[in-house]
Design a protein around this nucleic acid. Sequence first.
DNA 1: GAGCATACCTACTCGTGCGTAAGGTTACGC
DNA 2: GCGTAACCTTACGCACGAGTAGGTATGCTC
Lengths: 212, 212
Amino acid sequence: MSTGPAFKRLPRAVRQQQMLDSAVRIFSRRGYHGASMDEIAEVAGISKPMVYAYLGSKEELFVACLHREGTRMVEAIAGAAAPDLPADERLWRGLRAFLGFVGAHRDGWAVLYRQARAEQPFARELTVMRARLVEVVAGMLDHALRAEGREVADTELEVVAYALVGASESLADWLADHPEADPEKTATQMMNVAWLGAGQLLHGLTWHPPVA
Amino acid sequence: MSTGPAFKRLPRAVRQQQMLDSAVRIFSRRGYHGASMDEIAEVAGISKPMVYAYLGSKEELFVACLHREGTRMVEAIAGAAAPDLPADERLWRGLRAFLGFVGAHRDGWAVLYRQARAEQPFARELTVMRARLVEVVAGMLDHALRAEGREVADTELEVVAYALVGASESLADWLADHPEADPEKTATQMMNVAWLGAGQLLHGLTWHPPVA
DNA sequence: GAGCATACCTACTCGTGCGTAAGGTTACGC
DNA sequence: GCGTAACCTTACGCACGAGTAGGTATGCTC
């Protein structure tokens, strides 16, 4: 008499998600190259050929992780920032959603940003996502500027947007390494730097290097 | 009659630097795992066992690269920021030195930040360097605050410093990907966000979330 | 309850790349 | 000139991990 099968047979859709969950965890801990397909399969409670059957190659598996986590993140942010609010409130909501997401999905964040940036094949994918974020922020600044009746070259806006996105990412990393920290509070502090600084710029105030 | 040895015999110190030069280039292009010791040896114009004889293992070689480039960078920044200047000028000089360094040593930057962050064994090394930078910035803010007769919790300062460092790093990446861009100008733009934002904070102005 | 698709496994092949053993060649001290 | 130490090479062992071949069990349909 058997005790029944040790492994339940599950429909494809379910197993696939389990595999992705496992892969995100392993990739985030070991890095792309450090992760082995054997370990991913083991953690998913399944054998290796199943992973290949469902997800293709290791590279495709990683891209699938990137895609799922990236989509979740973008949706979390997009869902929070209603289009017709004043600029600072949009920035605030987007920021809060972003840091909140990172706080709740640290593995996803690690895969998305820490791993993917280093690897040639995936850098492009990542750069595109990031560029979209920068564009959104730059668009917001531009909108606010026009409302003030002022105008600034696109490159300048892009650089400022880059700085803001970079600062947010940096705080996201800080958050990922400090589990006790409160995402909400961190977002407020980020707003302090971002909005006061950007706000000054919006009102035409600029800083100039000291004359040597 | 031989045409003489194809490879010159060189003293250890010289060869070691050549190897590190080669290693930094290859690591920055291929990533830590993507780089092969064979290729590094080939580019250095030397055979593989020499690399092992002088630098030990692949991991040690990478750490040596990290260490050399990191030291160069820290020295470049520290050498620029004289201790007794006003806060905004210190920030400005440090920033300019930092972005100038990245503009001139793109390979070094790539090794230091893009590669090392993803790999477990080196993350710690990197975190320490970064923490030192954050500490310097936080110290500067603290100093300026006390001069204003105000005081703020250490954690708050750290978060703001983190944001500033992150924004700078982000612009460094932008710079590395835009060879035509001018580091000097980029530094000025960064100062605009950083100093106006931080400056407002220093004067006691804060941003508060809207009451839902 | 036969047939078929789908879920799932064990056990391999094979390339790649780290690290090394063993030996050759040039410079330099005496 | 001759030993010796430092420089440098070719050619290999070996482990690890991506990907696969081929086979088994389970449920679903008619």
